[in-house]
Design a protein around this nucleic acid. Structure first.
Length: 779
DNA sequence: AGCACGCCGACT
DNA sequence: GTCGGCGTGCTC
């Protein structure tokens, strides 16, 4: 009663009499970023939204509600995050207007997970919830609101005695005669009239209406392809041991993390599929996270062969499709969810296991707010569900590695150092590009030894994979007389020349212009094309190996849906002899006839301004090397590099992860970088470089000020601010970008400081800033 | 984000 | 004396 009063703002406030009383209160957060209103707000729950007889309109946590907000009482959609009886404070609360969802969309445990994310990633809870809940679910995609009309019994009884205009009478009689409720258009058609007379009837109260949400399609059955069921494979000793480790973790009372470190081709997937079979066997669900790029029909097919009810979630799905999958998962109809990063939020009612395949992949970190890492979110979810988390990689992130193999491990390590079927690891050798340049090696991207190896492989009817991690034809366009470099006007990065479309293209903002015939600066005729991209490599391969079928895979050629599968199918069938491309060919492919892998330039990422540059290089070379030697014909790898002695490259050549880790970890330790410390990055951008830099300078001061108390506690807790400095991508889409890095061995201290700084920092107009907790991208 | 409040200059 | 400029700050 009391609650209803405040629906009408002009009524005399009832709290004066009831000030000491209590009221049913809903705590909400505004949907999305909340337009700056990031905090939690309390509203009274009116009686009609607390009625247990009306479960569809009951306010409860996990449902969205409509609330009046601000001075103008704007109607905003918000997430209810708590309901409870609270003492009336001095402030007079407004009341909820409506409950929008007929049932909670977010469970209590998912809400706790979202709260943790909001806290840890310094993002408003409302924005986190928009990420947890797919857009298709929020908009109830694939369903439609329909108005259903019926005739009240009392009206039907005196139907013949009513005096009505002709059209209205016909419509009313048709509706009364119908066995089921009809929508206005249906009735209009039946009674051969427009909706006007029907509306008149509704107004008079002779026809009653209710609104329902119905599915627009029920195509589930049509979409599930039939596949032949496969039996579990016989495991070898390493695999059996790894499976036993996971099964032991399943029986543990608390969540356990298991790191499967298995070389490429060691049969990791079969192991965790068998673990999932156990989990499914006792009525629980499993979530398998894979990098988006490996969500190919091949990967998905392996799961379809083994499980009856799987759901696949990826970014190319329509809202309707995603919504349908989401509901099937929530209903418990699904055994295994396979998906990219955001599948970590799949609403499985009884989660029994989470697997993260290719755990080291950077795509598990979201690059927009909330900038969460699926590995960390999965860890929290697994802990809450008391379910194991299985991380799988041939090249584990050092973060995961230290947890499993460090001095104080909290994860189990399962090693699979051998390939299945007794296959040997491929022979890897480096080609020193410094020496090649001095010797008589031919010009171009492919050195003489690599060229000979390609010839040999092709002659032997083997297939070849060539990796070059730069798309386009030439990486820069320069005037030979004055040195002028063609740059993007918005990003100040070199434009890449794309020969197939004849444009100079910015890879960061997609700006494009025709390549100049004369130098824009000194007007001399002709410009030179420098640097190597996949298109130029393709041209070179075609020229040197005219008899081979060559296929290029990069984001330019793989744009259309299904092109990825078609390309890989053609390669699998042997129609293509040389597959070349960017890192998308480095990962997960398993083709037994590949007898040679060539890495065109292994050091391309080695000197990036990123403390993980070595790790990235090691991962890329190791992963692409793993694409060969997967059949009985064996395989070899040739790695072109200017730094054959670099520890990351030398370790990759020897397939020696432990050696790489042993070399890299002390450097991280010395500097307090992850996994021995935490890093937070702040990025600011705006059209005015001075203002952008000044904001970060102010941020740096604030960080230092708040950090003093931890600095005083000694080096194990001190904060170190690096920067501000221009970001590696100094100008992007017309905006100047600066960044600063803060690190500390004490992650909690760093987090506390950043929380305060984020709350305090005020940006001038035209400057935007973000905080990236645990960044994986330093550009 | 939006909207009201407030504290200064040009007008009835 | 008041109408309205948009700078500032709050929103349960």
């Amino acid at each position: 009663m009391a609650a209803q009063q405040s629906l009408f703002a002009d009524d005399p406030p009832d709290w004066e009499q009831d000030a000491a009383g209590e009221a049913l209160t809903a705590t909400v957060v505004m949907a999305g970023a909340g337009g700056g209103a990031a905090g939690e707000f309390d509203y009274l729950v009116p009686d009609q939204l607390a009625d247990p007889r009306n479960p569809e309109t009951r306010a409860e946590p996990g449902r969205r509600v409509l609330v009046p907000f601000g001075r103008g009482d704007r109607r905003l959609s918000a997430y209810c995050v708590a309901v409870g009886v609270k003492p009336r404070g001095a402030r007079r609360l407004k009341s909820l207007l409506e409950v929008l969802d007929p049932a909670p969309l977010i469970s209590e445990s998912m809400l706790r997970l979202a709260r943790w994310m909001a806290e840890y990633y310094l993002t408003p809870l409302g924005q986190v919830l928009e990420t947890v809940l797919p857009a298709g679910v929020r908009g109830a995609a694939g369903t439609r609101e329909v108005t259903l009309l019926s005739v009240p019994t009392a009206v039907a009884a005196r139907l013949t005695r009513l005096e009505l205009p002709e059209k209205q009478r016909r419509a009313l009689e048709s509706l009364a005669a119908s066995t089921k409720p009809l929508s206005p258009p249906q009735l209009a058609k039946l009674a051969d009239c427009t909706t006007a007379p029907i509306n008149a009837l509704r107004k008079k109260g002779l026809v009653e209406s209710r609104v329902e949400r119905l599915d627009t399609a029920q195509a589930d059955e049509l979409l599930a392809p039939t596949v032949e069921r496969q039996q579990p494979k016989q495991l070898n000793k390493d695999q059996a041991h790894t499976l036993a480790t996971i099964l032991a973790a399943l029986e543990a009372p608390q969540s356990q993390t298991v790191l499967i470190h298995g070389v490429t081709g060691s049969g990791k997937t079969e192991v965790y599929i068998q673990a999932i079979e156990r989990v499914v066997g006792f009525g629980r669900q499993a979530i398998v996270l894979v990098p988006e790029i490996s969500l190919t029909p091949q990967t998905v097919g392996r799961f379809r062969e083994r499980f009856d009810h799987i759901a696949v979630l990826h970014s190319h799905q329509s809202d309707v499709e995603r919504h349908r999958q989401w509901r099937r998962i929530a209903a418990g109809e699904i055994q295994v969810v396979v998906g990219a990063r955001s599948a970590v939020f799949a609403p499985t009612p009884h989660l029994g296991l989470i697997v993260i395949d290719e755990e080291h992949e950077t795509s598990f970190k979201q690059d927009t707010a909330p900038r969460y890492h699926a590995r960390e979110v999965a860890r929290r979810r697994a802990e809450a569900a008391r379910a194991p988390l299985v991380l799988s990689s041939a090249t584990p992130s050092l973060e995961a590695w230290v947890r499993a193999d460090g001095p104080d491990p909290d994860a189990l390590l399962a090693s699979m150092p051998r390939r299945v079927g007794g296959l040997p690891m491929p022979d890897v050798r480096t080609i020193d590009l410094v020496q090649e340049a001095h010797g008589r090696g031919g010009r171009g991207a492919i050195s003489r030894p690599l060229s000979q190896a390609i010839h040999a492989s092709l002659e032997d009817r083997g297939q070849v994979i060539l990796l070059l991690n730069r798309r386009g034809f030439s990486t820069h366009v320069r005037c030979p007389s004055c040195g002028y470099l063609l740059e993007c006007p918005h990003c100040e990065t070199a434009l890449t020349f794309h020969r197939d479309t004849n444009v100079a293209l910015c890879h960061w903002c997609d700006y494009r212009e025709p390549p100049p015939r004369i130098c824009p600066d000194c007007k001399s005729a002709g410009v030179n094309y420098h640097g190597l991209g996949t298109q130029k490599l393709e041209a070179e391969v075609r020229a040197r190996f005219p008899s081979a079928n060559v296929l290029r895979m990069d984001t330019d050629t793989m744009r259309s849906p299904g092109s990825h599968e078609r390309a890989l199918d053609a390669f699998r069938r042997g129609e293509v002899q040389v597959l070349l491309g960017t890192q998308m060919i480095a990962k997960g492919l398993d083709f037994p006839n590949v007898t040679l892998v060539g890495v065109i330039n292994a050091d391309s990422a080695l000197h990036w301004p990123d403390f993980r540059a070595s790790e990235r290089t090691f991962q890329l070379v190791t992963q692409v090397a793993g694409r060969t030697g997967r059949g009985e014909r064996g395989g070899r790898v040739m790695v072109q590099t200017f730094e054959p002695g670099h520890p990351a490259i030398a370790a990759a050549v020897r397939h020696d992860y432990a050696a790489f880790a042993a070399g890299e970890l002390p450097e991280r330790e010395a500097l307090g970088y992850p996994p021995y410390g935490s890093v937070v990055r702040m990025i600011a951008r705006g059209e005015n470089a001075k203002l952008v830099e000044a904001l970060l300078a102010k941020a740096a001061d604030t960080i230092r000020r708040h950090g003093e108390e931890f600095d005083a506690m000694g080096p194990a807790h001190a904060l170190r601010v690096i920067g501000p400095a221009p970001a590696p991508l100094e100008k992007l889409r017309g905006e100047y970008r600066f960044h600063l890095l803060v690190r500390s061995r004490d992650g909690a201290a760093l987090h506390r400081v950043m929380q305060r700084v984020a709350a305090e920092l005020e940006a001038p107009d035209g400057v935007r800033w973000v905080v990236d907790v645990d960044p994986v991208d330093m550009m």
